[in-house]
Amino acid sequence: MIDPLFALLIAFALSGILAVLFWPAKGIYATYKKAKRNTSRVLIEDTLKHLYDYEERTVRPTLRSIAGHLSIGVDDTIQLVEKLQSMGLVESSQDGIQITPQGRSYALRIIRIHRLWERYLADETSVKETEWHLEAEEKEHSISVEEAEALAAQMGNPVFDPHGDPIPTKDGEVPKRNGVPLTTLKNGKFGRIIHVEDEPHAIYSQLIAQGLYPGMQVRIINTEKNRIRFEVNGEECVLAPLFAANVHVIPIQKQEEITSEFKSLSSLRKGEKAVVVGISKACRGPQRRRLMDLGVVPGTLVTAELESIGRDPVAFNIKGATIAIRKKNADQIYIKEFSQEELN
């Protein structure tokens, strides 16, 4: 019989090798697969997305911007664009590179899959928020249209992705983005810049100098007669109304965070009562629906009844039933102190 010590050593060595080979995300196999990702299909699809994106933002794409977007060399990019041209997906003229209607519908298909997948990750997988986009960037190239449709059907045909962007329909329709001038946005509201008017040039260059580009997210701090203060990507910015009117935004529904004012359900101690005010928007999809179905709606009286080890989960009395909820979810349920009048 083989010496047990020797056998053990071999076994450890073997598992070590296997781990190096197949370790998720970092193993040799995973790295190899990632490297292989840059196939021509991926390059084509990413180019189309880039062109579509620029078109939407009324910016002119260039060979350089494409090369930068794909992180490949300019020579490769030229070849790629030629290939796209021969496929009838783009046209190039003196005006630059332009996407054809076919190319646009191809791009929209990819965007649909991308946003559907983000929605799926957000609603049904509990993958971290920061990873949605990256995973969707990969997935969008490998899912077939049929699979995507099945996924959409199963999720109840979502129309928005978790960032609030509309998901194009199967036929490539997206809602017309009817932008409004930045001046019309009310205090405290959120919007996304969709268009920066390039005429007259004096105003345009001023806006560009301020660093305002389509795609940025803004929040109005306050509007006065002769100036508008707003926050853009975390920085404060001030514009005269004349200038601000040349920036077009679409209002977006950014959750009005109620965190600061209200305590969360997880702060309730055993035996204490409180009234539900709402569920954070970060709790989405089936999880949110499930909580609401169980009676976690604004106005419901809840009592903390039982605590499991480490106070997670805690069982609450909600509309007569004892329901155990994990801390992570209880954190997302906001409550306020309960007063007698509230009850009726």
Binding site: P24, L291, L306, T322
Partner: peptide
């Protein structure tokens, strides 16, 4: 849940009868 079925635990709500 660390590899092929990556993700954190989702909501859990259980009625205790």
């Amino acid at each position: 849940s660390k590899t092929v079925l990556k993700g954190e635990a989702s909501a859990f709500s259980l009625e205790l009868p």
